[in-house]
């Protein structure tokens, strides 16, 4: 079995987000960047399937500028076998990313595609589902457990109020939720080894994918600030304030 994992370069989840003064976008200059946490979970799951003998090859793909090769190398250091960068300097919408990934899938013919349920920058939660539609494949979104069986994969999904188990035919697309696994740290020897693993670069043009703009970003503003209130000294005072001042109990 061959597994394709998609990884996205995003702001580090601990870094502070600043909105540009002209409200055109957020300011990411000199900001620490990292692999999207949900994508990291996807890489980890693929590697575990390989370690368990269920998969033979793990391919990591990323769509983005040259700098996203860092995130592909990070996935290779965790244990992926080779990388593919779809090079573009444009900040692409989910549907366009899905169209590029769909072409990579057609070329690579993986049996399973694992990706994060959402990226922590745009918070869209769309690409996996869109890719599934474009390829007419089943989707197992928000996965907290994956079990490979003969000819199908069972996915336990995090849904409102509990868990749902679905059976999907292969090839299938799975998007990860946070309880699926806890990603490992790359060891120094593996980081060194990752530098020598193959990384192919393709472009939207070489993939033959036509991209279209679906929305226009008009402005980006900071959210309404919430100011700190008061400290109370006791539970009694808290109850008194909630009853008489805030009137919420």
């Amino acid at each position: 079995m061959k597994i394709l994992v998609a990884v996205k370069r995003v702001i580090d989840y601990n870094a502070k987000v600043r909105v540009k003064a002209d409200n055109s976008n957020v300011d990411l200059s000199n900001t620490k960047m990292a692999i999207n946490p949900f994508c990291e979970i996807a890489v980890e799951e693929a590697i575990r399937l390989k370690e368990a003998g269920s998969a033979q090859e793990v391919v990591a793909v990323s769509v983005g500028p040259k700098a996203c090769q860092e995130q592909i190398r990070a996935a290779l250091a965790l244990g992926a076998d080779r990388g593919i960068q779809v090079e573009t300097d444009d900040n692409l919408e989910s549907l366009n990313v899905a169209k590029l990934l769909a072409q990579v899938v057609r070329d690579e013919q993986p049996d399973l595609i694992i990706m994060g349920k959402q990226a922590i920058d745009s918070d869209n939660n769309q690409t996996g589902q869109m890719l599934s539609a474009l390829l007419n494949m089943p989707q197992g979104t928000f996965a907290s457990e994956i079990n490979l069986q003969e000819g199908e994969v069972q996915v336990i999904r995090e849904i409102d109020g509990g868990l749902q188990t679905l059976g999907l035919t292969l090839p299938a697309i799975i998007t990860t939720d946070l309880r699926l696994n806890e990603p490992r740290y790359a060891s120094l020897p593996n980081i060194m080894k990752a530098k020598r693993k193959p990384l192919a670069v393709v472009t939207p043009e070489t993939l033959g994918v036509e991209l279209k703009q679906h929305s226009k970003l008009l402005k980006v503003t900071p959210p309404a600030e919430r100011s700190a209130g008061i400290l109370v000294s006791s539970v009694d005072e808290l109850i008194e304030k909630l009853k008489n001042q805030a009137k919420v109990i």
Partner: peptide, 14 residues
């Protein structure tokens, strides 16, 4: 909201 609600985007659908 984007970036965990640390920014609000105004988008026009085309």
């Amino acid at each position: 909201p984007i970036y965990a609600g640390n920014a609000i985007a105004t988008l026009q659908s085309l």
